[in-house]
Design a protein around this nucleic acid. Sequence first.
RNA 1: GCCGGGGUAGCUCAGUGGUUAGAGCGUUGCACUCAUAAGGCAAAAGUCGUGGGUUCGAGUCCCACCCUCGGCACCA
Length: 510
Amino acid sequence: MKKFYVTTAIDYVNAPPHCGHALEKIQTDAIARYHRLLDEEVLFLTGTDENSLKNVQAAKKEGIPTKKLVDRNSKKFYELKKVLNLSFDDFIRTTEERHIKGAQKLWLACKKDIYKKTYRGLYCIGCEEFYKESELEDGLCPEHKTKLELVEEENYFFRLSKHRDELEKIIKNDEIKVTPESRKNEILSFIKSGLEDICISRSAERAHGWGIDVPGDPTQKIWVWLEALSNYINGVEYATDEKKFKKWWPADLHVIGKGISRFHCIYWPAFLLSAKLPLPKKIFVHGYLTVGGQKMSKSLGNIVDPFELVEKYGTDSVRYFLLREIPSAEDGDFTYEKFEKRYNSDLAKGLGNLVARTLTMVEKYCDGKVPEIDKDPDSHPLRIDTKIHNWKKSWADVDKHVPNFQFNEALSSIWKFITEADRYIEENRPWDLAKEGKIKELNWILYGLLNAIHQIAWQIYIFIPETSVKIAKALKLEKLLVKDPKEKDSWTNIRPGTEVKEIKPLFPKV
RNA sequence: GCCGGGGUAGCUCAGUGGUUAGAGCGUUGCACUCAUAAGGCAAAAGUCGUGGGUUCGAGUCCCACCCUCGGCACCA
C-alpha cells in the first residue's frame, strides 16, 4: 500500500484562527481525502506553533501564564477539525514532549554546521525585537517611536551558505517540487542572490525562559523557525519512534502559505541536508485570503471568523466557497456578497435543486424506488454522450486538477455536469412522459439521473463530504458510506428496486 | 531601484500567429412546471492598458511607456 504523508503549516497561537487558516486546512483536507480515495495509506498532520515570544507578550497582556494562553488558543485550532470536517490524523503542538525531543535531536544532528558568533543589532525594549535600519522611521522604533539600543549578544549560527549550491540544484531539478512555478522561481532567484548564515538561537533571558533549550546550553533557546519546522519530522516521531519515522518520512507534501515559502523551501531543506535526512517531495504554496480586497488583519478589524461563518451557513458552504472561488495558488477575495452569490447559484439552485427535483420525480413517478430499466446502464447518455459534458469528463477533470491543487477547476467541471443533468431533464420532460404513460422511457431518464447524482456524490466527496454523505444516505450508497471510501467503488451502478429517501433541501436559499 | 506575474464583456477569468474574441456569474426577453419562484432557451454587452513595429494576417511576437500585484533574508 502506497503511503502519503501530508502536512499543513502549524499556526501561531497568539490569536484565534481566521478564515485564512481555514483555507489551508480545507485545501489540505481535500488532498488527503483524495489520496485516501485512491486507496493510499494517508497521514495528515497539522498543529500549532507555540514557542514564539509573541505568546509570552500576549499572555502578559492578559495577565495569565503563557502556558495557559497557548493551551486555550491551540484548542481553538483543534476545534476546526469538527467545525470544518477536517480529516487530519494527528495534531502536533510544539510544546509537546515528542516535539521538544525531536527539535533538540535535529539540532544535534546539524551540529557540524552550527557555530557561535556575536550578533549586534538595534533592539527595541518595548517590542523586544531587533530592527533593521531600513525598518526604522526617522531612526526610531516604528511601533514605539523610541530610540533603539545597540545590543550585542552571542548566538549560534547555522552555515546556510555552505548548502547554497546543493539547494539550488534541488529546487531547480524538482527534487523538491515547489508549486506553483512562480514560487519556485522566486525561491531560485533568492538562492542565486546568495545565502548568508542564519542565526538560530536567542538568549533564554530575552525569550523570558519560553521556548526550547539549545542542547547543552540552557542559556540559549532554539530559534523558533528551526524548531517549528522540525514538527514535520516530530509528527512522525523522529526522536521517539524509529519505526514510525522510517515508515512515513519523508513527507510527500507540505502545504504552506506564500509568506513562509522561504523557510520551507530553503531553510528546512538545508537543515535536513545537514542532518542527513531525506527531503520532502513536494511543497505546495497557496495564496492568501483577502477580505474585500484588503489583507485580513486585526488592526483593520476585518477578520472573518470561520466559526461564525460555519454557524451561519454550514460547513460545506464554507468549504465549497473556499475551494471553488479561490484559485488555490493565488490570492482570493472573500466578501459576504460573493459568498452568498456562490451559495445561491451553485449550491442552492445548482446541486441542491438538482437533487431535490430528481428525488421528487422518483417519488412521484417511480414509487420512491430506483426504476427498472431494460438497457445497459453503462450506455446512458449522461455517462457516455460525447456531445455533452458527461460525468466521465468530470471524473477525468477531478483526476487531472486535484493532483495539481486546482480545486476550482475540478469543481467547475463537476458543476458543468450538474448543468448538463438539468438540461437533460428539460430536454426529456419526464412529467410529460408520466402523463403519456411512457413508463419505459421515463424509467430510463430517471434511472440515468439517479445514477448521475450517485456519481456527483462521489465526485464531491473530497470537497464537501457532509453533503456527499447526505446524498449517499438518500440513495443508499453503501460503498460511499464507509469510513474511507475507495474510488474504485464508485464505478458500480445503482441497483433498480432500491428505495430512495427524499431529503430536506441540502442548501436552503439565503 | 532590481527581478517576476498581470492589465480581455458590469464582475471573475479562458484564449498553440489565422474565419464574425469565448465561459461562468450578473442583466434583459421567451417558453416550460418535476424542483429550494428553482431549472431550460435566447439576447444585449468588449477601442483585448497606451503608442509604435514585424507580418498577407497580432489579444497572441518585438520595442517603449502607463497602471497593478508579488519577491528582494536572519518579524533573530
